[in-house]
Write a protein that binds this DNA or RNA. Structure first.
Length: 571
RNA sequence: UGGGGCGUGGCCAAGUGGUAAGGCAGCGGACUUUGGAUCCGCGAUUCGCAGGUUCGAAUCCUGCCGCCCCAGCCA
């Protein structure tokens, strides 16, 4: 192995591993490492969640510990069973296993209620009758301390009675809350008597109508971690200010106390990663659903053709730190190509067909050439590809007026047809009206069977092709970046990220031709279309009509050269 | 004007007082029946800035600057 290789078995160091190793050294948690991935079932998982999933499950695996899957379902007004199903599917697809440890914060509602009663009895929590607006006013501002609620000093008995009646459903939504009694003058807003329970007469997707009071995140999260015996509770940076509260609840209760650690969430260039914005894209129809291949959701990436391996590799490579960052999406694409290069069978497909007739090739003759499935892996074998007199090549592979350094086809030029023969262009047929090139006539050299010239003559260009009579028709969907700016939120005054939507993010090609070996290709299977990129079979495929998604194009050195040539000419 | 964080090449990111890893991107070149892949080579005299401590500082101290988060009965 080269020393520069990075693999999952040699994770780079990061501050979280340092903390865990320190805790292991000092025996803080009896040598245990137990993490959890705690999604709220109110949306689909995206690549940002993948970072957290890989971190939590990865750390547990590396230190011989466990990682739970816990749904943070404390808000029945926003959560749905549909989301828990998709989340489970996505985590499983990514390659992680939570065994029998599938938990829900709602599993702990009764215990949480009892803990709350304990705090009331300790004089550390009280029922408050302030309205939402009043609570806000009493909370103060960032620079001014808040005021204490007039209900703050109710007796333990009264609090107990009121809290019980809150649970019993005697009060209206929003009329009362249970609050922790901490410090209304704290410079940390989270410590200004945070709400622990709110009244919500809503049906919960798991507990039905059993409850009409629901715990807030702050009250539920730490105690859920504690109940599950979590050792390291990893979350994103914005919860850092909540840590004193997380610790306070656990200390007041005197129960198992996990350590909360925060890290910077992922930001990816040319994309948005917030549930709110992703929801807008879906609901306003800028994309076709949560699994649109242009979406950074795991279901979108999966449909696009991303592999779990490539996403895990990406998450390993971006590292874990506390600095806000914007990761270049080129790194994600690199991880994808690296993975697919090793595994995707090569196949020939012509996206924009240009008819080519081999004048000196016998009419009616068909030869079946052996084609290597993957030069990176001889073990993947070969397949037969039919060659005949009439073929299709890519329109982009012919130029009547070739620029410098062009070594594809042009009038009088010789190129190699991959796996077949060397051919020379002898005639160009154009549409009389439009002047558009509609057909090419070539001659082949029978001595070059297989693509090698016995006289050793150099042929730089190699084209992919397909036999017209044997090719299958297919639809190909080309995807480009959803946004035109690396930071989609960088929009003109008064506008938002929608102003940076790329109008050309999807291009559908319906006249494509693919080699016959693709007949019966399975939905989801990956291929490299030679010289074009990686593609996968979309679920929209029908029996006689395959639909492919372009997962990612191959690196295009020619495009780069041509760009440079144009730049030079522009000077 | 409160509190909590963060600042290492274009983008990530190691580094924890001993003289700046690695990856991506970029740029050269080799090789090539994918202008793919692969291979080789090239970048920080410098770690936000300014002082200070030290034989020695990205790492310690002081001050300053910049960016992010917090005023949901969301998570």
């Amino acid at each position: 192995m080269r020393k520069t290789d990075r693999t999952a078995s040699t994770p780079s160091s990061n501050f979280i591993r340092d903390i865990i190793e320190e805790d292991l050294r000092t025996d803080r948690y009896g040598g245990r490492v137990h993490t959890r991935f705690p999604p709220e079932p109110n949306g689909y998982l995206h690549i940002g969640h993948a970072k957290s999933i890989c971190l939590n499950f990865g750390l547990a695996a590396d230190y011989g510990g466990l990682c739970n899957l816990r749904f943070d379902d404390t808000n029945p007004t926003k959560e749905e069973i549909e989301y828990v199903e998709s989340i489970k599917e996505d985590v499983r697809w990514l390659g992680f296993d939570w065994g029998d440890r599938e938990f829900y914060a709602s599993d702990y509602f009764e215990q949480l209620y009892e803990y709350a009663v304990q705090l009331i009895k300790k004089g550390k929590a009280y029922v408050c009758d302030l309205s939402p607006e009043e609570i806000r006013e009493y909370r103060g501002t960032l620079t001014e301390p808040g005021k204490e609620s007039p209900y703050r000093n109710r007796s333990v008995e009264e609090n107990l009675d009121l809290f019980e009646r809150m649970r019993a459903g005697e009060f209206e939504d929003g009329s009362r809350t249970l609050r922790a009694k901490i410090d209304m003058a704290s410079p940390n807003m989270n410590m200004r008597d945070p709400v622990m329970y709110r009244i919500l007469h809503a049906t919960h997707h798991r507990t039905g109508d059993k409850w009409c009071i629901y715990p807030t995140y702050d009250w539920a999260h730490g105690q859920s971690d504690s109940i599950e015996g979590i050792t390291h509770s990893i979350c994103t940076l914005e919860f850092e200010d909540h840590r004193p509260l997380y610790d306070w609840f656990l200390d007041q209760l005197g129960i198992h106390h996990p350590r909360q650690i925060e890290f910077a969430r992922l930001n990816l260039s040319y994309t948005v990663l917030s549930k709110r914005k992703l929801r807008i894209l879906v609901e306003e129809g800028h994309v076709n659903g949560w699994d649109d291949p242009r979406m950074p959701t795991l279901s979108g990436l999966r449909r696009r053709g991303y592999t779990p391996e490539s996403i895990r590799d990406f998450c390993e490579r971006i590292g874990v730190a506390r600095a806000d960052s914007l990761v270049d999406i080129a790194l994600l694409e690199h991880c994808l190509r690296e993975d697919l290069n090793k595994r995707a069978p090569r196949v020939m497909a012509v996206l924009r067909p240009l008819r080519m007739v081999i004048d000196n090739y016998p009419e009616g003759q068909v030869e079946w050439f052996d084609a290597v499935n993957n030069p990176e892996d001889p073990g993947m074998g070969t397949r037969k590809v039919p060659f005949s007199r009439v073929l299709y090549i890519e329109q982009d592979d012919f130029r009547e007026d070739p620029p410098k350094k062009w070594f594809r086809l042009a009038p009088g030029r010789e190129v190699r047809l991959k796996h077949a023969y060397l051919v020379t262009c002898v005639q160009v047929v154009k549409d009389e009206q439009t002047g558009e090139v509609v057909e090419l006539h070539c001659t082949y050299d029978p001595e070059t069977r297989g693509g090698a010239a016995p006289d050793g003559r150099k042929v730089r260009g190699t084209l992919h092709w397909v036999s017209a009579a044997h090719a299958l028709e297919a639809e190909v969907r080309l995807y480009n970046r959803l946004f035109t700016k690396a930071d989609p939120d960088d929009a003109p005054e008064g506008l938002d990220f929608r102003a940076n939507l790329n109008p050309n993010s999807l291009e559908v090609l319906t006249e494509c031709r693919v080699e016959p070996s693709l007949a019966g290709a399975e939905v989801g299977s990956h291929y490299q279309f030679l010289r074009l990129g990686y593609f996968c079979v979309d679920p929209d495929s029908l029996a006689g009509k395959l639909v492919f998604n372009r997962t990612v194009p191959l690196r295009d050195t020619w495009a780069k050269i041509e760009r440079k040539i144009k730049e030079q000419r522009g000077k």
